[in-house]
């Protein structure tokens, strides 16, 4: 049996589960509203004149695209992994001839069709109200956008699996994710377009992984990046995806040696 068929089976069961939990998903969807709050705030600021290149319409386009990226790259594996380690239910995954991370990744990926379905009306609203002139007209940007979304999702999964795996060593590992989220909100472009940061902080912003989880895909569809900038950003993005994946696998492998499987 091919590896593809196995992955498809896992994605299919994850999709069936996401349909079973559609109410929960809808609530999550409706509560992903921080960019909308920020949009209103920044639009109020831009009423008297643009902030950098952002006028009211640009802020609206930026933050609505942010919502789309957030919905398509959201994940919950840090909470799931931590909970399964603490309750011992990780044992169920360890008994199967599939690496638990592959299974988690398939489960996260299986939620994408439902998310795409809910994001579609939002995209239509954006285009009807703001028009298409605020977004990139270059075909190449739209071609690489899914790759940037995939990279953003991979970094998020890598970070979440790294922090989740730390629960094998430390009961309170999830508190690290809270700290990570605090930095993410500031440095990812989720609450403020990154180019509005002072020039002296820009190198740090470009160096940290947060930009590549949120702002980078948004910058692509808004046509803010030229070819060279795109390439450099992709190298950073997939470099971070690889780094966090290796880190997560290493911590998980070492942690299993001391796993007590209590309750499992």
């Amino acid at each position: 049996m091919s590896r593809k068929e196995k992955l498809f089976a896992m994605v299919r069961i994850g999709f069936a589960e996401s349909l079973a939990y559609r109410g929960e998903f809808l609530i999550w969807f409706l509560t992903t509203n921080m960019p909308l709050v920020m949009m209103l705030l920044w639009m109020a600021v831009a009423k008297d004149g643009p902030v950098g290149r952002f006028g009211t319409r640009e802020f609206a386009a930026y933050f609505l695209t942010t919502v789309v990226v957030r919905l398509l790259t959201g994940a919950w594996v840090a909470w799931q992994l931590t909970m399964e380690i603490r309750t011992g239910t990780l044992a169920r995954r360890l008994l199967r001839p599939v690496h638990p991370f592959v299974a988690y990744a398939c489960e996260q990926a299986s939620a994408l069709p439902l998310r795409a379905l809910t994001v579609a009306p939002l995209v239509v609203i954006i285009l009807l109200t703001l028009g298409t002139d605020l977004f990139s007209s270059e075909l190449s940007h739209w071609v690489v956008f899914p790759l940037a979304l995939a990279g953003a999702l991979c970094i998020r999964l890598g970070v979440m699996m790294t922090i989740g795996s730390l629960a094998l060593f430390w009961d309170s590992a999830l508190s690290l994710y809270d700290a990570w989220l605090a930095l993410f909100f500031v440095f990812s472009g989720y609450t403020i377009p990154l180019e509005l940061f002072p020039a002296w902080i820009q190198p740090l912003v470009n160096w940290l992984p947060f930009r590549y989880m949120m702002s980078f895909p948004v910058e692509i569809v808004m046509g803010h990046l030229d070819g060279r900038q795109l390439l450099v950003a992709f190298v950073y993005q997939w470099g971070y995806a690889l780094l966090f994946s290796v880190l997560a696998l290493t911590i998980f492998r070492r942690g299993l040696k001391r796993y007590a499987a209590f309750g499992g």
Binding site: M1, I13, E17, Y21, G88
Partner: peptide
Amino acid sequence: KQQLFWDLPPVDTFELNRAIYDVP
């Protein structure tokens, strides 16, 4: 402890196990 998916019918778990255990 259980391996069956709580909100899905058992036949879904059977089908998943068929795939991941390479059963023709």
